[in-house]
Design a binder for these strands. Structure first.
Lengths: 212, 212, 212, 212
DNA sequence: AATGAATGAGGCTTCATTCAT
DNA sequence: TATGAATGAAGCCTCATTCAT
């Protein structure tokens, strides 16, 4: 989905821009600052990217490419549904700590007033995630693993909602703070990962009507 | 002396500002535009609000006050836990259609490097929601309504995550679009409300290990 | 020279405005602030004074009226020239401590960018001071008190320059600071008044070629 | 890259700003106007100077540096005290005609609630002038040129007061007008310079108790 | 082609002045 | 008539974009 970025310089610009857009939002980020932090001239930014919107969209593409990769990792596990889900949650915990900027940027993208172009890009990813989940749940239902009573599509939606919020809780200041308010101060610390994961698995196993 | 702003006009400023901040974010919103749309001069805005941040905080307070009111409505029901939850979901569906701007603004708030003033306001609301949910779940556990196996705090968190995402799905363009991708085109239409609600109740009942 | 100010309210406005103009200059002073500090509405200010410039001019008139009064006090002494001068210097020291705002305002008036109207007002005062000094010096020359060698007009000018700078040194922050730099830290303290005065008398007596 | 501002252009900004600040004061001067008159964009001004205050301070520094240079010129004379003083007065007359804006700006500086930055700069200049004069007078006393009876510090102060007022009379509209009132219409005309100078020398020689 | 200084439109905020009550 | 809230032009400053080198 993303245009392969062949150019190192281009990559560096995007990596830097992701940090800035993630932190300050589209309007709050500053092209001149991005250039400076990326160690390039504003000129080259405007050589590669028509304008701020285009750069933003490129950042979104870059982030999504990364996030897409996560699915592949989770699928590698090849286990059953519950194993896949646990795998996925563990990955979220891990990756959100390594690259919180991707998830922050994603959150930024979801607010109003963002370039239209970027939204289209996201649709693609959401669609493929939606399809993946739906297929998983359909298969699980056929295999008798989860209750026949669930609507695969909307349960996919509810499930992904939970995953997204977990992402945010591990990456974005506001949601991390909220996490603390709900669960106590140190819950995002690494040692609590297992607890967070297992409770979520319980929640989901119950919701899906299957064993965990 | 010239007639002071009527309460209506003052409310109009806040209401207009909420719309603009909700739509364009803190940085993207434009005070002069807000004044124009509210039908007042820039001057009065700066009479009632020290600066842009203060206006933003006032908007946030207004929105949260409204959202807080929802809890009271849901509690009026007086029924058991499941009834309360269903009530709450129904309210979300209803209110998010009436005042999507409140939920958009809330989302904006969570992405912005928030003014300190707003931060405190939000903490209070989140805390009271967190406490309410936890107490509900504790009581429900004691009454034997939901599984003893759930950790009340983190389940409150997961639950509220789902509620928030429902809010967003009913109010914010991006999440509405995402809803459609997962569940099909017309899912936010009013006629599907019951389906959305019932499936969510199934999801939650399962998660909490209780009957629905 | 000054229109007799019959109205108490008007007086209060002017007194307050003098402080503000003296402190912040014409552009830096704020009509709304003046109204507030004077305990009146902006409305009455604009009733009595066409605009900011007119108010400023009224303040200048007020200050000059006061400063004019000083001459009369000094002349009351009825002594010889040197006594008059010493009297005058003592008055400067005294009055500048009681009403520094008048001298600050005067200083403000002398910078560029002030309302034209006010400058005209000042001319009158300067003229009368100039005439007074010249007459004094002429008489003193005729009486053989001061050297025939002095040009009365320009010596009046030099003399008044010294008086003005003394005013400023006793009233205006910058010149007070400068005073300290030249003469040491505590020179503007009351206990040093006599020293300042006597040295100035020596300076002048020498300049005028007369005894002191 | 676009050609950076030439030194000439940079100087032009400062020179223009000095004129504007000198004429309208700190508050009355207008950055956009300065940019326009200097033939540059507002942007560059803010590239070289953080803000209005910083630009103002730069102007003050520039002016003071120039004024400082005057001392060196006067000292070059190498003559005795009276020759130095006459030299200095002549220089004031000359320079104030060439660059009245510097002295106007200085006057503006003394009325404004000065930026801290400027304050320090000024202190230095005043201090070095104060020291120079004091040393001159001390030496002159030791050499028996001027009366032992003078306090070197305060006489330095009185003397510099006269010099400053001369500056103002030759540079600043108000003081020029005042000069005319005291001495007759055409006194600032070049042909009267010698008269002004000689009378001042008489005044000073008398004050210092030495021959001229 | 890459640089990065310059540009200038546009946003936040102030405050002299107006005017409805 | 006095009030003081409202008005809105104008000033400071930022930053997306341009363009000379």
């Amino acid at each position: 989905m993303q245009k392969p970025l062949t150019d190192d310089q281009k990559q560096k610009i995007i990596r830097t821009a992701i940090f800035e857009f993630a932190e300050y939002g589209f309007n709050g980020a500053n092209i001149n600052m991005i250039a400076e932090k990326a160690g390039v001239s504003v000129g080259v930014i405007y050589k590669y990217f028509t304008d701020k919107e285009t750069l933003f969209t490129a950042c979104v593409k870059g982030s999504l490419a990364y996030m897409d990769g996560m699915f592949d990792k989770a699928e590698e596990g090849e286990g059953n549904l519950m194993e896949f889900l646990e795998q996925l949650i563990a990955l979220v915990q891990q990756e959100a700590r390594v690259h919180p900027e991707y998830y922050k940027l994603y959150l930024q993208l979801t607010v109003s007033g963002m370039p239209k172009q970027s939204k289209e890009v996201v649709s693609l990813v959401e669609s493929s995630a939606a399809r993946l989940y739906r297929d998983l749940f359909l298969k699980a239902k056929n295999d008798g693993l989860i209750s026949k009573d669930v609507d695969s599509r909307i349960f996919s939606f509810y499930f992904d909602n939970m995953i997204m919020m977990l992402h945010f809780a591990y990456s974005c200041d506001y949601y991390e703070e909220r996490f603390k308010i709900y669960c106590g101060r140190e819950i995002t610390s690494e040692e609590k990962d297992e607890f967070v994961r297992e409770e979520m698995m319980k929640f989901l196993a119950g919701a899906f009507g299957c064993n965990y």
